[in-house]
Structures are given as structure tokens and as C-alpha cells.
Nucleic acid binder design. Structure first.
Lengths: 203, 203
DNA sequence: ATTGTTATTGAACACTGTTGAATTATATGG
DNA sequence: CCATATAATTCAACAGTGTTCAATAACAAT
């Protein structure tokens, strides 16, 4: 068969990404397959390859959708008060990872085949998250931009590690809210300004 | 064909794990396959299923080998001086991940199918790493065991996050040693006892 | 020797990703 | 208005994957 011309190429890409996004949400990265997505949108595998060239590119587009949705979420719900921003972003990261585990973890489970480099349009979608945290951290480092960039990445990476290991059950933590408490500890250390763990209070 | 009886079952398991370990090192988690390992050891796929029941169990055994090797490595090379222990373990984590990226990342890329729980013999091999750090951290928290456990996990998770994102190139960091500097910053915050990022020195 | 046990294989099944040739609907040009 | 070119879509095929299981053959026990 051939051209249905029910949709333009751009519309089809959108449909494919949408279907892929939903499938990622439902089945997770492991259950994600080109044939599955194609079936979901009422087409065949070949169409996806025709639209995106290769599977890596398609998955990157699906993950980019997640990053866009996530970024939008962070920005729109950020509080106005500057003092609470750091705490908000840190906990918001964990909250999003928890609430949308499948599509969040897909961001980090995906690997380019043959260790091919990530295309240039994708990387910024990950990196711009730093800008948010940089801004939030700024008042805590005496408005030093270099210090802010450095601390922002440190906090981002640390929160990421806490979230990853915690949600994978690799932290041997008991009770709900353990990961949240770890993040609070981190914030206290990085930005709290007082010694937290020497003679610390048993909360 | 049938029983060659060149090796006992235990010997065969050892051979399989060894072959799997090497294959993981060479090809990475993505390039790891049951047939590949079987071929490498001069047998067929069925033998691996006969030995381990299912592929998850086999991979866990291979990863357990990594954890054993890693743990041994950490313990044997740890310095005597207590003051340097925290710094040693933190940097040692990153160093191992860098030097043996394939088998290290396999520890975290592997997911149980159907989200089946990890068998009870496996989890401790991951958890005992905490004990090392707990001990190293202890003098820094006034010998409070609860505080030590809490800080140890925080540092472990944070260093894990730094290593993961850094080695995956998701941190937008320029220049060699950037990840190492992040770890130094973390140590300074957690255990250094002074404010690091307010008026911090541009090293 | 005969029987039983079990290690090992091989073939089959249902899936992957990936490629390319065959179709056919539409756009273009005469 | 018909002929031709373009390109969207499908289908079939290939080489892999994990997984299961009957058939085989080597050994142990009686």
C-alpha cells in the first residue's frame, strides 16, 4: 500500500512521538519497541524508520518530549520566594522521578548504539535544567556565577544519585520519606550554613 | 549429545560466570548475550539455563562477581590513616567506575524482568559497601552510629550520581578532572567543616 | 547387563531491530 | 486528461535475542 495522506509528515511525527511517549509510560524502557509503537498508532514499523531514520533518533525524540514536559512542570510550579527555590527544585526532582518513573528512568536507561554521540539538538534539553538550579543557588553563594554553576551541578548530580538508587531499592532504606530526608540533609550541608552531622538532631 | 563430565556442576558455574564476567567487560551490558557467553565457554545456551535457571539469575551472578572484586579492591587498598578514609572511598568509587566502566555500569543497567525482587543473597553484596563508608565517616560525626549510617548513604548516593552523570557525559563539564573536583566539593561540604561555596576560592 | 539419572544439545517459538524491494496514492508536467 | 515521477506505506526477509523442551548420550547404580 502507499501514501494515505491523511496526515502531513510533521503530523505523523507528532503522532508517533505521542504514541511512543505513552508506551514508554505504560511499559517502561524495557517494554518499548518500534513495532509496538507502530501498532499503537495504526501503522507499521517501516513508517517509524521512514520518519526518524533510526530507532535511536526516535527514542531521543520521545525522551525529549519527557524533558520538555518536565522542564515545563518545574518552571510553572516553582515558588516565587527565592529562599525556598533550592529546596523546591531538589524535592521536585525526586517527586517527578517517583510519579513518572518509567519515562524518567528511560532518560538514563537509553544508550546510543556504538556509543554514537548524542545529536546537538538534544543535549541542551538536559543542560537547561542546570540554569534553573543555578539561579536558585545564586543567592547562597554570594552571587558568584562560577560558584553557582559548580554548586548547581553538584546538587543536581547528588539528587540524581539519591533518586536513582532510592527508587531502585539499592539504598537499604526503611520507611517512607527516607529519600526525602536524604535530600533535606544534602540541602542542609550545601546551603544550610550549619554543621548538620556533628551532634545532629534525631528527627 | 550428553554429559561430558569434564567438569562438575560447580566448576561449570564458575566457568560460566568467568566467561560472562569477561564478556561483560568487553562488550558491556548491551553486548552481553546468553548465546555469546555459551559460545565463549564452548557450550550451548541450554547449558546456561540448566546451570542458573533463568538469565536474570545468571546476570546477578556475574554482577556479584563484580561486586566481590570491587569490594576486595576497596578494602585491600584502603589507607591506614583514618582522616583520609572518606576522601579515599569517594575517589576510589569514581576511579573504579572509570577504569571498569562496562562491568560497573552493568550493576545498574540490569533490571529484573517483571520487576521481580532481587534474591536475598544478592542485596548484601551491594549493602556492605555502606559499612566501609560508615566506618570512614564515623569520626566526623562524633561517633554517632545513626548519623554515620545516614551520612554514609548520602555520600554514597551523591558520589554515585556524580559518577553516573559524569561518565555518561550528561554534566556538560569541560576539562579532565571535573568529576574529581565535584567529589572534592562534596567532601568539603559534608565533612570539611567550613563553608565552601560562599566566597569560595577559584581553584 | 539393565535400568535410571542427568548433562548437553538442537530445534522450535515468539520476539527484537533493520533493511530494501514492491506497491500505490498523490503531485507534477505535458 | 492522461502519463510520469515522487514518495508514503507495507511486506517480507535476515540476523539476532530469550526461552522452552524433547531427544540424545554419557555416566552411576543396581
Amino acid at each position: 500500500m502507499a501514501r494515505r495522506s491523511e496526515h502531513t509528515t510533521e503530523e505523523l511525527k507528532e503522532i508517533a512521538i505521542r504514541a511512543g511517549f505513552e508506551m514508554m509510560d505504560e511499559k517502561g524502557y524495557q517494554g518499548f519497541s518500534a513495532r509496538g509503537v507502530a501498532a499503537k498508532m495504526g501503522y507499521t514499523v517501516g513508517t517509524i524508520y521512514h520518519l526518524f531514520g533510526d530507532l535511536d533518533t526516535f527514542i531521543l525524540n520521545v525522551n525529549a518530549r519527557t524533558l520538555d514536559e518536565w522542564y515545563e512542570d518545574e518552571v510553572s510550579r516553582a515558588p516565587k520566594k527565592a529562599e525556598q527555590l533550592v529546596r523546591y527544585y531538589a524535592h521536585s526532582y525526586l517527586a517527578y522521578a517517583r510519579a513518572h518513573y518509567n519515562r524518567w528512568s528511560a532518560l538514563f536507561e537509553h544508550r546510543m548504539q556504538d556509543d554514537a554521540p548524542v545529536p546537538k539538538w538534544y543535549a541542551p534539553k538536559m543542560m537547561r535544567m542546570f540554569d534553573l538550579i543555578e539561579g536558585a543557588v545564586m543567592p547562597h553563594v554570594g552571587d558568584d556565577p562560577k560558584a553557582a554553576a559548580r554548586l548547581a551541578k553538584l546538587m543536581w548530580a547528588s539528587v540524581h544519585g539519591i533518586s536513582t538508587l532510592s527508587l531502585q531499592g539499592k539504598l537499604d532504606q526503611t520507611g517512607a520519606g527516607a529519600a526525602e530526608r536524604m535530600i533535606d540533609d544534602l540541602i542542609a550541608l550545601a546551603v544550610g550554613g550549619k554543621k548538620v552531622f556533628v551532634g545532629f538532631d534525631k528527627r
